[in-house]
Amino acid sequence: MEILFWTIVVFGLVYSFWYAFYLVKNKNKLGATGMALVGLLIGIFSFMVRLK
Results as ranks from 00 to 15, higher is better:
residue 31 G to Y: 03
residue 26 N to P: 05
residue 39 G to C: 07
residue 3 I to P: 01
residue 16 S to I: 02
residue 37 L to Q: 03
residue 3 I to G: 09
residue 39 G to M: 06
residue 29 K to V: 13
residue 35 M to V: 02
residue 20 A to W: 11
residue 8 I to L: 15
residue 1 M to Q: 11
residue 43 G to L: 05
residue 38 V to G: 03
residue 46 S to I: 03
residue 18 W to P: 01
residue 48 M to G: 07
residue 52 K to G: 06
residue 34 G to R: 08
residue 11 F to G: 01
residue 30 L to D: 02
residue 46 S to Q: 08
residue 34 G to L: 08
residue 11 F to M: 04
residue 45 F to G: 08
residue 17 F to L: 08
residue 27 K to L: 09
residue 4 L to S: 04
residue 18 W to E: 07
residue 31 G to F: 05
residue 49 V to P: 00
residue 30 L to Q: 10
residue 30 L to C: 01
residue 41 L to M: 05
residue 4 L to E: 08
residue 38 V to Q: 01
residue 9 V to M: 10
residue 2 E to T: 09
residue 26 N to A: 13
residue 8 I to Q: 14
residue 3 I to N: 13
residue 6 W to T: 03
residue 51 L to C: 00
residue 14 V to A: 10
residue 41 L to R: 00
residue 15 Y to L: 12
residue 11 F to E: 07
residue 17 F to T: 09
residue 8 I to D: 13
residue 21 F to D: 14
residue 7 T to G: 15
residue 4 L to K: 07
residue 37 L to C: 04
residue 29 K to D: 02
residue 9 V to I: 14
residue 50 R to I: 03
residue 24 V to Y: 15
residue 6 W to G: 08
residue 23 L to D: 03
residue 18 W to T: 14
residue 7 T to F: 15
residue 12 G to Q: 10
residue 27 K to W: 09
residue 33 T to S: 09
residue 23 L to C: 06
residue 18 W to I: 09
residue 7 T to R: 13
residue 15 Y to N: 10
residue 43 G to Q: 04
residue 20 A to I: 01
residue 46 S to A: 14
residue 51 L to A: 01
residue 12 G to H: 06
residue 45 F to I: 02
residue 32 A to R: 04
residue 8 I to S: 15
residue 51 L to N: 02
residue 26 N to F: 06
residue 50 R to K: 12
residue 19 Y to K: 15
residue 23 L to N: 05
residue 20 A to D: 04
residue 47 F to I: 11
residue 4 L to M: 11
residue 38 V to T: 11
residue 42 I to D: 11
residue 44 I to F: 11
residue 34 G to P: 00
residue 10 V to C: 11
residue 20 A to S: 14
residue 27 K to H: 12
residue 36 A to N: 01
residue 22 Y to V: 10
residue 5 F to M: 04
residue 30 L to T: 09
residue 12 G to S: 10
residue 21 F to K: 14
residue 8 I to W: 15
residue 6 W to R: 06
residue 27 K to R: 12
residue 10 V to H: 06
residue 52 K to A: 04
residue 38 V to Y: 13
residue 5 F to C: 02
residue 9 V to G: 09
residue 1 M to K: 10
residue 23 L to A: 01
residue 33 T to M: 05
residue 37 L to T: 07
residue 47 F to W: 10
residue 50 R to D: 00
